[in-house]
Amino acid sequence: MTDTKEILTVQNLDVTFARSAMKAVAGVSLSLGQGKVGIVGESGSGKSTLGRAIMRLLPPSATVTASKLTFDGNPLLSQSEREMRALRGNRMSLIMQDPRYSLNPVLPIGRQVAETAILHKGLSKSAARAVAAEMLDRVRIKDVARVMESYPHQISGGMGQRVMIAAMLLSRPRLVIADEPTSALDVSVRGEVLELLNELVTADGSSLLLISHDIRMVASFCDRIVVMYKGRIVEELSRLSDARHPYTLGLIAAMPDARHPVHRLRVPDRATFDATERSGSPA
């Protein structure tokens, strides 16, 4: 059961880069209460750009406008960078897709996780290390003391993603944006990481915005599915069987299914997608 109170509200959000007339995100509107919402679409559809626009983490070349963009009722676009730094990693967190590029390669794991507690909880170094160790244990890291002294290159990808989740959820944020959190992991550990993420956000009462290419995974994991194509939301679903838009149906058809093997997967028909967008009808 999801909470009906809106934690995040987005209305008519646009993102453009430099002097380009093409909008990377165009007219996006969505709301998120306590629960899990998945955003799916192919590369370039605007998923990650939307997530970073919400976090105010786009480069200076980006222009972000919206009729409304609020977090817990507070307008995000009018917040100063100092105010946003107080929010990021504290009340709203972003989990990146590959720990190899998200963790600092020259700092031990324990120090990196403890930094969150120092920055957002105002703890001393010793108290922050204790909280970091507790959080690493919570994400089911074995031999926490050894891992805290290890460097990112000394741990596996699955363990690195657990470390990222620990660091981002240590402050128990209200909003968690997870950008392809399992794409860099082996298939054998993807399910474990998703299960862990679900347990943590549920226990802490957080809202999760999950960005992914995998529409079937999102459908099985999230309460609601938002489908993006060319920067726009083309369909919102609670289950895949309700899909009507040709693009959503194309994404489903392009995913391998062991239950229904085929000789060749269907190629998305972009002409049909674009015609549907121009007509405004999913039929």
Rank of each mutant, 00 (worst) to 15 (best):
E6D: 08
R111E: 15
H245D: 05
M148Q: 12
H120A: 07
S183Y: 01
L103F: 12
Q79T: 09
I177M: 03
S156N: 07
L76R: 01
G158Y: 10
L57A: 13
D214E: 14
Q97F: 06
V218C: 14
S150R: 08
A53S: 13
Q11P: 00
Y101L: 13
S45F: 09
G35W: 03
E6H: 10
A145F: 10
L69P: 06
A127N: 07
G46H: 09
R278F: 12
A184R: 03
A253N: 05
S20H: 05
S67R: 14
A128E: 03
A117W: 00
G38Q: 07
I155W: 05
A117G: 11
R239D: 14
I225Y: 05
G191H: 10
I141R: 03
A243F: 09
A178Y: 11
L57H: 06
V218D: 13
I211F: 08
N104Y: 13
Q11H: 10
V139W: 01
T16Q: 10
R224A: 03
A21K: 09
A21M: 01
M217L: 15
E134N: 15
S61M: 10
H120L: 06
P173S: 02
S67D: 15
V37K: 00
E149A: 15
D242V: 04
D137S: 15
S126I: 13
G110E: 01
R146K: 15
I39S: 00
V25G: 07
T116C: 06
V40I: 14
A128V: 12
T65H: 09
R19M: 04
T16D: 07
H153F: 12
L185I: 02
P268C: 05
A62W: 11
S188N: 10
M217R: 14
S150E: 09
S188M: 10
R100F: 11
L175W: 04
R224M: 10
S124T: 11
D223P: 10
F273E: 10
G73S: 05
N74W: 01
S279W: 05
A133Y: 04
V201D: 13
A271K: 15
I225F: 06
A133L: 02
V25M: 07
V227P: 06
A18Q: 03
A132I: 02
R162A: 04
V144M: 04
V139M: 05
H213E: 08
T63S: 13
K125E: 08
L175N: 01
M22W: 00
A26P: 00
V226T: 10
R266W: 01
I141F: 00
L209A: 04
A26Y: 01
M217F: 14
V267I: 13
F221T: 13
M1Q: 11
L208Q: 09
L265V: 05
T4R: 15
L194E: 12
N104L: 14
T63Y: 07
L208K: 01
L210H: 07
S80C: 08
V187Q: 15
